[in-house]
Design a protein around this nucleic acid. Structure first.
Lengths: 270, 270
DNA sequence: GTTTCATAGCTTGTCCGACAAAGTCAAACA
DNA sequence: TGTTTGACTTTGTCGGACAAGCTATGAAAC
């Protein structure tokens, strides 16, 4: 990587540059970027609300005074960011960036940066403990019912590792939702997306894995019903320590980086 | 909030649809999307490594057999996702999605979804406690030095709320880094981006705010030096409870949603 | 021989015009 | 009244074009 040439005008004999760096390089933002930012700003500030139509490409081009191609490039960026999406009629509508989209991007970034299972484990421990703690305080009958339904489904799927690990993911996602704290819910999701799928591996390799998982889930549900924070956190810790033991028993090392393999299971940009 | 029309093919004259839903709507992915996915896949699977040149637009167009405009649209999406970036020479290089970029997107999503300061507070409590706990175990002399430097700068800036809140943000970001757990570091950042800037408000409104903040930071540093987990966590809790008191003393309500105002302070997509 | 300069060439950002496919709407038709 | 048809709109893609900026190559100067 070369040091960026400061400015083209420095090409001609400007040795006096050493004197002092008076001016920064002046940057001209590309037009498509300005278009994207303008629309994004409308949404961010609430002047454009989710679900509202944005207008046709041609119209936007007219408004901004740029070519349709330029508008299209700006829109691609917004689309990727989740700020706009196309309706069934292919038209453009403003929309709120969806958490799930961002979470899976984060997960993929983690994989690319080669975080280890230990990091995942430690972080998950902190986040799940916090989730269950808050859930104990505010959980609703509806969420309890959803958790119960999840456990029931898992009981029926005891011999299907794939389904079981999906249900495990769901169970913990439900817990986070039950905490009533969306920041927490959001914070745990990227890690959860990588962490819980390993349940499949464990269920395959460790005979009593599924049973212990279910036992823990049932105990957690009971503790939540009773709103017994102490019991709930104890079981959550046990549950996660169990995961760790299972992971190691399955012959894996906590200090391995999360494999790229998982990148495939993460929802590719829809 | 309107349910976004996600994929309702129930558009027009498909009355015979009632008979039976034998076939799914067949979707032809747009070419620019295929281009984007192809390149993304190369990076995700590691065949294209960060820093490697991707090729010129014209060349890609030739390879994929599509027009340059189409390639450009695909690239806009990848650019937004952080998978490619342009070098100083404006050429395309593969790159790893950067955390910070994703974090600020998450923060903005939180603002749009109107999370409350209480949610932010509770989540931050969990995340900062975990960070400091792990940091106690693994912090390096270099990180201790960085924290000390931060405190020194803050001491010098006691009367500058803006600078002070920046340094507060940095301090906690450093702590997270010191934990050696990138998952944790990543998980806390979106919340941190919204949470810590409020220090400015508090320093402005609460006379002893700055002093107490500095006191806490110094105590945290000492505890880290001594690797005293108990002391460190105690101070962290106190520090955050202090924030909460200050926030309320400043006349704010924990159950307010985080204002859209903050959206402006979040790095706009550079 | 090395340094400086200038030009040519490539690449990007933008524009223009065009066309097929798919969706919408409304008038015409049974 | 309900369906069909057809005109109109909008998106996705293409081809070509040009100015601005960066690189490099070679020429000129020392």
């Amino acid at each position: 990587m070369k040091p960026l040439p400061l400015s083209s005008s420095a090409g001609t004999g400007l040795a006096m540059r050493a004197v002092s760096e008076r001016f920064d390089k002046i940057q001209v933002p590309a037009a498509y970027r300005l278009v994207a930012e303008a629309i994004e700003r409308e949404i961010l500030t609430g002047r454009l609300r989710a679900g509202e139509a944005i207008g046709t490409e041609a119209e936007l081009g007219r408004q901004f005074g740029v070519n349709r191609s330029t508008v299209r490039e700006g829109i691609r960026a917004l689309e990727e960011g989740g700020y706009v999406s196309r309706g069934p009629d292919r038209r453009l509508y403003a929309s709120l960036p969806r958490y799930s989209r961002l979470s899976s991007r984060m997960s993929r970034a983690m994989v690319l940066h080669e975080v280890t299972f230990r990091e995942l484990y430690d972080a998950t421990m902190a986040l799940e403990m916090a989730s269950i703690e808050h859930a104990c305080a505010v959980i609703t009958p509806e969420m309890l019912a959803e958790l119960a339904a999840n456990i029931e489904a898992a009981t029926a799927a005891q011999d299907d590792p794939v389904r079981l690990s999906e249900l495990d993911s769901d169970f913990h996602a439900l817990l986070a939702r039950a905490s009533g704290n969306r920041v927490l819910e959001l914070a745990r999701e990227p890690a959860g997306l990588l962490f819980f799928p390993t349940a499949e591996l464990i269920c395959r390799r460790v005979p009593e894995g599924a049973r212990r998982m279910l036992e823990a889930h049932r105990a957690l549900l009971e503790a939540l019903r009773a709103r017994d924070v102490k019991l709930a956190t104890t079981w959550m810790r046990r549950h996660l320590v169990d995961w760790r033991k299972g992971f190691e028993r399955a012959g894996r090392d906590l200090d391995e980086p999360v494999e790229r393999v998982y990148a495939r299971t993460l929802a590719p940009p829809a």
